[in-house]
């Protein structure tokens, strides 16, 4: 059975752009050897690694998408693992092809409106009991601190992220 796969591999940044190009060609050759059809090719560029890999602190990330007979995957992975140029690689099943979007995006749509309702429901009885203008004012008051809290949370997240870096 043919499956759609995604391959991400990591090449050391000590290589020159030219050498990386060679590696790219080599990987593609391996893929075609196993009769896979490449549907997408993307260089993610030079990135700082989260931890040193074989004393490399930076690396080029290269992304490929392809269709492959699933029985051949084991052999393909073996060959990739044996090639010295790749520091890391990962092959993952890719369900919706990147070209054909919007297949799975239909199911749960109304999550956001639900949340808004949840925020407003405690307010509604008060609005009903009081004359309208004051009720509107009250609504504004209550919505402001909520927004601020969200901003605060976001800021906190940013600070925490900063710590990680």
């Amino acid at each position: 059975m043919t499956q759609h796969y995604e391959l991400l591999y990591l090449v050391a940044a000590t290589m020159t752009e030219e050498e990386v190009h060679k590696v790219r060609e080599q990987v593609k050759r391996i893929l075609t050897k196993y009769e896979s059809k490449i549907t997408l090719e993307e260089s993610q560029g030079k990135k700082r690694l989260a931890y040193p890999v074989d004393k490399n602190h930076q690396g080029y990330y290269e992304l490929l998408e392809f269709d492959l007979e699933s029985a051949k995957l084991v052999e393909l992975e073996r060959e990739l693992r044996l090639s010295n140029e790749l520091l890391r690689h990962i092959v993952v099943k890719k369900t919706p092809k990147t070209a054909g979007k919007g297949l799975l995006k239909v199911t749960r749509v109304s999550a956001k409106p639900d949340l808004d309702l949840a925020n407003q429901t405690p307010m509604t009885p008060k609005i009903a009991s009081k004359p309208q203008p004051t009720a509107v004012e009250k609504k504004d008051d209550s919505s402001k601190p909520r927004l601020k809290l969200e901003d605060l949370d976001e800021k906190l997240d940013e600070i925490l992220e900063g710590d990680i870096m």
Partner: peptide
């Protein structure tokens, strides 16, 4: 925070392992 799953809220079906900016929020 409001107790709603981030991914349900944003209607995310498949979480991409390459999206490090997003994933870092959950570390």
């Amino acid at each position: 925070k409001p107790k709603v799953c981030y991914f349900c809220l944003n209607n995310v079906q498949i979480i991409d392992y390459k999206d490090t900016q997003l994933l870092r929020k959950f570390l």
